[in-house]
Write a protein that binds this DNA or RNA. Structure first.
Length: 879
RNA sequence: AGGAGUGUAGCUCAGUUGGUUAGAGCGCUACGUUGACAUCGUAGAGGUCCCCAGUUCGAAUCUGGGCAUUCCUACCA
């Protein structure tokens, strides 16, 4: 065999291109549908939101999944590892709106000739386009983004099967989502109802509990005097005086002596002169404010609950846009003792946004004579500043309002116990993450609102019949049939109706809403398995083996997926859930685009190589956050280079050696056996670690062993391997080198797929009949037949080398400088075994030596190991 | 306020079931290097293992109590 031409240096970018194409054209990552379920490993990959670009946080967590998956592939598993794109939903709408300067107006007709052009415009100058045009431009934009994402994932070396990719807006996903909805409907697990719901006034849509976050805001307490029918009065404290017109009751704690006597009486609100009952309520806190407070429709969740429990009237004054409505007082719905005065106030407030209205109301309340009790101004004293916590939609800028609207809900509140039980059946990595799930489910207080008043999403497969006055009958919806799916109720017709009956008396109307994006992504395992449409495929892919995801979406993605799987089939969606941590900045805050992180993953890969980034991601355990640190990329890069150089060296030693001399039976020399037994341990450890999802532990163990291999073992045996290659001593070294090298490539393959594939191709691709290391068999431990070779010989040799190098360094001499005499001290456990190392050190270090030993006294500390002290005297051969 | 995590070298982190002198990498300092490798090698400096108390022959590790910090949840009229 003639010597191959090996590159002088490793060029990561060229290699990444080459092997990326190689994997694709050889179908290395392809799922085989013919293989049984037992031999298949199914990953429920997170579909990232397609709204701009991926960042280092994505690289981090997706790499961790890929590492686990590559291990399983080498264990012989048939891998199902799809990619999904979450392209529907608000993020896409927002991105398109900003990028193209357009806004959806569902009342406009479709314009065939309209073409979206990138042009950012101010909000007021945005072009209004039809719903269909809007959806088209959304789809066009996400398709472009997805291409960019795919390119990055390929470059990073994620071993995804791109044949299994899906987009959550495509026909198949819409079908599965709608099927899911219909199934829940049949099981009586969804309901439509008009009820107070958290509402974002900017996007004008309902939002679910899981999408809400608290933000701290400065605010003020305003003390306002109310009159009582008996002529007395009291003062309430509020941060939201603009809701005065929506006041439906006043409450105090049942045990509050100050107000007990007022229960059952009525109070009169200032400005509006509305008569409201004074009632006891458990949620009133005697210590807070004045102890008595107003109940409005709706200020917060307590208002909603109290309003529901007591059957109070609904006086909604805030409209969907976040402005105060034009309210006519003196009507049945909005009674007033002095309607004229109330309407005068109402006129001044109508059309104002909440913040402006607050200012105005405060202004009016501080006017002389505004107090209904006849005590001058209703506003008492100065407003007191306070830190408020207001609920916000995570993507919105204004506080949420509770507004009563009609929405679709999945009934989850009745099944908290069952859903926690389902969570318990799944193996969480790390285990402690289950607590988060449990706590979230336990604390739920609202059903899951799945309808959104948006456009780019999966429509409800629902129509409503219209009565003679064109009023929809929401209580008796018309559901699509399974065969109709996917269906757009705004374009298609319920069975038994004709298109020309749309919107007409006694006709029908389509449900205009779309589903929450989680209603679709909660079905990712079923989307991949083709639930409901392909039973055989479903049985092979469901439940999945692994769900990887981040911890902040346990309350959404994990929870909703578990919920859906339980509701549809009383199953858990996956056997394992692996929770990745975050990439955080040096101040331990989560890194994100908005924080101005300008480093793109693409440029990092170009600079450091994909393997280097993967190394960094693989160093972090599941569930723990990692500080962004480019130094770790450098370490990864160095490791890859070392793999290249060491491989080159080993390859040059063994390339022309006949196969028969590289068999394991040739490993006869003690030092080689000891090294092989050390490798056995590394293989065992890392396999064990991988099986427990502890890939980072596996990496550490392999990495440490590899550097030791380069620094110690290679140094020890290189002379022997080179000079005595035709003797049994030399062959022992060569066989051990070949075996060790092969195993290192394999052990590192999940982490560094490119460099390992590169060096694998030099020799083993052909010898092992495995074109790709990633489809080769995971290393097995070998039997050495002599278990006594587990002693510290390598450690001694290591120490000998270190002392040797140290001495020479101290003497400021070359490492080739001959040593006159060197005394080496150390400890060894096994006396017989110790005798054997004599020739090895001499041999491998090219040195002659004498070894003396004597028993060591039993350790004073009581530790019961037996030791022998030894000293080695080394002096240079007269070579 | 409740829950979960974290706290070990200047930095990023390992540290299994308690066990001899607490580790690695980076960084720093000094030195070396024509034979796989300067994307290298060798050596050195650097520690109150957050604090206090307890259990133990022995604690980074176990127990109790604090402190700091991150995240989740709740409250905040």
């Amino acid at each position: 065999m003639k010597s191959k031409e090996l590159p002088k240096k490793y060029k990561s970018n060229e290699a990444e291109m080459k092997w990326g194409e190689f994997w694709e054209s050889n179908g290395v990552h392809k799922y085989d549908p013919m293989v049984s379920r037992e031999k298949t490993f199914v990953v429920d990959t997170p579909p990232p939101t397609v709204s701009g670009s991926l960042h280092v946080g994505h690289v981090f967590s997706y790499t961790q999944t890929d590492v686990l998956t590559r291990f399983q592939r080498m264990r012989g598993k048939n891998i199902f590892y799809p990619m999904g794109w979450d392209d529907n939903g608000l993020p896409t709408e927002r991105r398109v709106q900003g990028l193209y300067g357009v806004r959806c107006n569902p009342n406009l007709p479709y314009n065939e000739n309209w073409e979206g052009k990138i042009s950012s415009k101010k909000k007021k100058e945005e072009e209004e386009i039809s719903r269909k045009n809007f959806l088209e431009v959304c789809q066009k934009q996400t398709a472009e983004d997805e291409k960019k994402y795919e390119k990055l994932w390929r470059h990073l070396g994620l071993s995804l099967d791109w044949n299994q990719a899906y987009e959550t807006i495509n026909d198949h996903c819409r079908k599965v989502s709608q099927l899911s909805f219909l199934d829940l409907q049949q099981k009586n697990l969804v309901t439509t109802k008009e009820s107070p719901t958290m509402w974002d006034t900017t996007f004008q849509t309902a939002v679910a509990q899981a999408e809400v976050e608290e933000r701290e805001k400065g605010g003020h307490f305003y003390d306002i005097r109310f009159a009582v029918e008996d002529g007395s009065d009291f003062v309430i404290s509020t941060t939201r005086p603009e809701l005065l017109g929506a006041c439906v009751a006043v409450v105090a704690h049942p045990e509050d002596e100050r107000y007990k006597h007022l229960f059952g009486k009525t109070a009169l609100t200032p400005l509006f002169n509305v008569r409201v009952p004074i009632m006891p309520a458990e949620h009133a806190d005697k210590e807070k404010g004045s102890g008595i407070l107003m109940v409005c429709t709706f200020g917060d969740i307590h208002d909603v609950e109290f309003w529901k429990a007591e059957g109070l009237p609904l006086r909604q004054i805030i409209e969907k846009e976040g402005t105060l409505g034009p309210i006519e007082y003196g009507s049945a719905k909005f009674p007033s003792e002095k309607p004229e005065k109330a309407n005068d106030v109402s006129k001044q407030l109508a059309g104002l946004y909440v913040k402006q209205a607050r200012k105005k109301v405060v202004e009016l309340l501080s006017e002389e004579g505004s107090c209904a009790a006849g005590k001058g101004a209703a506003l008492v004293g100065e407003p007191k500043p306070t830190q408020q916590f207001a609920k916000h939609y995570e993507k919105g800028d204004h506080p949420l309002e509770y507004i009563s609207t009609r929405q679709w809900f999945v009934k989850i509140l009745d099944y908290k116990k069952e859903l926690i039980e389902q969570g318990r059946k799944i193996k969480w990595h790390p285990e402690t993450m289950f607590k988060r799930y449990e706590q979230w489910v336990d604390g739920l207080n609202q059903d899951w609102c799945i309808s959104r008043q948006r456009f780019f999403g999966v429509p409800f497969p629902v129509w409503y019949p219209l009565d003679g006055n064109c009023r929809p009958d929401f209580e008796n919806p018309l559901y699509a049939t399974k065969e109709q799916l996917p269906v757009d109720p705004l374009a298609e017709v319920p069975s038994g109706y004709r298109e020309d009956q749309r919107g007409k008396a006694n006709g029908f109307m389509g449900d205009p809403d779309v589903m929450d994006t989680w209603a679709t992504s909660s079905m990712t395992p079923q989307i991949s398995s083709h639930w409901g449409t392909d039973d055989e495929r479903h049985s092979k892919l469901f439940p999945a083996d692994l769900r990887p995801q981040a911890h902040e979406i346990i309350r959404t993605w994990a929870f909703y997926t578990i919920t859906k799987s339980w509701m549809h089939g009383k199953e858990v969606p996956w056997k394992n859930i692996a929770i990745s941590g975050w990439v955080v900045d040096p101040h331990k805050k989560k890194m994100s685009k908005s924080k101005g992180n300008v480093v793109t993953p693409e440029s990092l890969i170009d600079q450091y190589s994909a393997d280097a980034l993967r190394y960094w991601a693989s160093k972090a355990k599941l569930g723990s956050d990692t500080i962004y640190d480019e130094n770790v990329f450098k370490v990864g890069q160095r490791l890859a280079t070392k793999v290249f150089n060491a491989s080159k060296f080993v390859f040059l030693q063994i390339e022309n050696v006949e196969d028969q001399y590289l068999g394991m039976e040739n490993i006869t020399e003690p030092v080689d056996k000891v090294w092989a037994s050390k490798m056995n341990k590394v293989i065992e450890e890392s396999t064990q670690a991988f099986e427990n999802f502890h890939y980072a532990t596996a990496l550490s163990s392999v990495e440490a062993a590899f550097w030791e291999f380069c620094d110690i073992y290679l140094e020890l045996v290189k002379t022997r391997a080179y000079k005595l290659k035709d003797s049994s001593e030399g062959r022992s070294a060569l066989a051990c080198l070949a075996w060790t090298w092969k195993n290192f490539i394999k052990l590192m393959a999940p982490f560094l797929p490119y460099i390992t594939e590169e060096v694998w191709s030099w020799h083993f691709a052909e010898k092992e009949d495995a074109p790709s290391v990633h489809k080769s068999e995971w290393p097995q431990v070998i039997s050495l037949n002599e278990d006594k070779f587990e002693g510290p010989l390598i450690d001694m040799a290591k120490e000998a080398l270190n002392v040797l190098r140290g001495e020479k360094t101290t003497a400021q001499k070359s490492l080739r400088w001959p040593i006159e005499e060197l005394v080496l001290k150390g400890q060894v456990k096994d006396l017989d075994y110790f005798k054997e190392i004599e020739k090895d050190i001499a041999f491998s270090s090219n040195l002659k030596k004498e070894i003396q030993y004597k028993p060591l006294e039993d350790n004073e500390s009581g530790f019961d190991g037996r030791y022998f002290e030894f000293s080695v005297t080394l002096s240079e051969h007269a070579d």
